[in-house]
Amino acid sequence: MDDKLKPSLAVYLIALADDELILAHRHSEWCGHAPILEEDIAFSNLCLDEIGHATIWYQLAADLLGEDRETYPDQLAFFRDAEDFLNIQMVELPIGDWAFSMLRQYLFDAYEVIHLERLVTSKHKPIAEVATKIRNEELYHLRHTRAWVHRLGLGTDESRTRMQRALDELWPYALQLFASPDNESLLVEAGLIPASTALQTAWITSVVSHLEESGLKIPPVRQSDLTSRNEHSEHLPDLLAEMQKVARLVPGGVW
């Protein structure tokens, strides 16, 4: 790989990891509060998986930047402020109701599976290897959240109303997943990452059919107003304040 592309590729991976970390931390708020005990455990477990994936992507970014892969993930997670995070805004929104969180996780899981299927052929071998591994687990996540979307969409009037409300709110935010990353054309030409337009086409095909089969109407929005991953809502600083509190109290602490 051309050394000049390394920083851009690292930023791409950090953005991906930030999406996973912030979504997982947000959804971990359901721990102890989910509608039933069994799903409480299952959903928390799924969040742990995502945090594990984020750690792996941060490590690959560390390798590209010549940073220490042992300490870099914690450094990124706990010692950056909101303006330095690169996650999309969808993942930082409050948990809302169960329909909102479950639909958000589904929209993200569907994206992850499509993304990983293409990263498997990345010319940066470590990315291809990690994608191959993580994709298997994401297939399970997607099966889980697909099942919930289907049942809530076709459940009672109330569950369908809540799902439609969640979809109307989340849809424009979800489309930010497909905003062009920095230096996209160079990274795509080098065979390192897939083109965002191709991802969007595949994602739309995948989620639209499932959402419609689940009795939901797709909002008319075609493109997100949100383009920059450097811009965040007021919800991110609050989330970070909690997530980073202990690590910042005792930097380098071990527990």
Partner: peptide, 9 residues
């Protein structure tokens, strides 16, 4: 759903 939840638990 039981099969999916059982995997996590």
């Amino acid at each position: 759903m039981a099969l999916l939840i059982a995997r996590d638990i």
